[in-house]
Design a protein around this nucleic acid. Sequence first.
DNA 1: ACCGTTAGCAAACAGCGTTAACGAACATGA
DNA 2: TCATGTTCGTTAACGCTGTTTGCTAACGGT
Lengths: 268, 268
Amino acid sequence: MTNPQATSGPRADGTLSRRERVREATLAEIKSIARRHLVEHGVAGVSLRAIAREMGMTAPGLYRYVPGIDALLVAITADMFDELADAVSSADASAPPEDTELRLHRALRALRGWAITHPTEFSVMFGPRVRIGPESDITPAVAAGGRFGSTFFALFEQLLQEKDIPLPAEEEIDPDLRKELNSFADTVGLSVHDVSVGAALVLTRCWVRVYGVVCMEVFQHLDFVVRDMEPLFESELQDMMAGFGVRYRPVEREEGAPTTDMTDLPHN
Amino acid sequence: MTNPQATSGPRADGTLSRRERVREATLAEIKSIARRHLVEHGVAGVSLRAIAREMGMTAPGLYRYVPGIDALLVAITADMFDELADAVSSADASAPPEDTELRLHRALRALRGWAITHPTEFSVMFGPRVRIGPESDITPAVAAGGRFGSTFFALFEQLLQEKDIPLPAEEEIDPDLRKELNSFADTVGLSVHDVSVGAALVLTRCWVRVYGVVCMEVFQHLDFVVRDMEPLFESELQDMMAGFGVRYRPVEREEGAPTTDMTDLPHN
DNA sequence: ACCGTTAGCAAACAGCGTTAACGAACATGA
DNA sequence: TCATGTTCGTTAACGCTGTTTGCTAACGGT
């Protein structure tokens, strides 16, 4: 045995054996094809048999890699949350670190941008759990969702430190709501002692609005009534920023690029 | 032929022949069973074969009544919109006609109440179109959705007449957004000449918030973080009413009834 | 060279939507 | 009353799905 790497079992260090590497590659291929089928044929069009067919193998073989179709969907959902988190946080990082306002603008626009360019993925992530029933274990996706949310939580906390955002007093918040907000800030990592309950309420309110506009746009619930949803999104953004006492930054478009229209979007 | 009703073809007046009556009854039974399967097993659990089995017939027989599973889902979706519209408008009618504020409170609470007691239905109606692809004809559901919306539009218009709601000036609204709002108010029936563009914007903003909270609750996107979403909904309601210059009306609970908890809700 | 682990396959079971061909019940006109 | 055409529901079949079971062959380490 001249090659010291020629082992198959899990190593003491982080390196992977050959067997583990090809296994990872196969799993990655499975998820990649599943993802493509998802965007091309919708969530109902993702099937183990079709994936296996495209890989040149049979469906039962996939069970060596994935315990079932539900778990596969959960897995790619987690991947998509990571991807969205990357898109948001790199948009965040694209702005000067000290310009928190601009970072927030870009992060929120990145969220919408990713959502409308990946409508099917967004539907699976933020829509109702229609295909994977409540009996499935969705903890991987939830964890990835947490990583996505923390980007915004951090941005919001920094904005709280810098600006003097008008916050509702603790007394004027219903005690029941206070309890919920505390448990929310608790599990989500917001330091309850630093940020007030009022701040948690403001953050939640904003998330409700962002979630609302983006879902309405992606789920196409005003499609027969409104053509372009971007002005509405920007208006909501502007109004939210006004509530923060933060100056609204208009959309920054690259030179020569036409306005963002939806002609080249996958229309599923 | 002593009985003049013993005809089968369509009548000149609105009455139905015997054949048409049993046909209607069978179709109603199909939709009723489909609806039950929907709430019991989710949208993925609705199948023509299972419905036929329960009716004591075979699946192909259902094709005499429904052109396919997609059209059946669209049909029961339209029914559910009608049902929701009924719930909302009867909550509206339960308040004194002159008390517009209370009517609005009750209508909005009826919307949330129906949503959380019918989570699966709500998901099909307001979530992404996952099962019925974009090639399906969903006009019946859209029409029924319009009937649902008009209840709120009427209430809002009346509130506009009565109260002096602070509205954003037309000049401070982005021209692109103005265009979209006009087309919205146009197709939806809001008389553009009566209500200003600012009113349409306020209405849309409110709808975004209501849609956002209710979807978040029904789709359970804060489930691991928040137990009861009612305080948040009420807080949003209160904030919206404050924006209208309207006094917030706390939840009216029947005597002796415990607080609305979710123990007896279907947990799917 | 030996041997245990793992990957992948074929067959099978149960379910699904949908189409085609056929028979029976029905309502109607002569 | 009888014949006729329409409607309803059936059986059979095609092709698709997820999943389990038992097997074979290759791989990896000793």
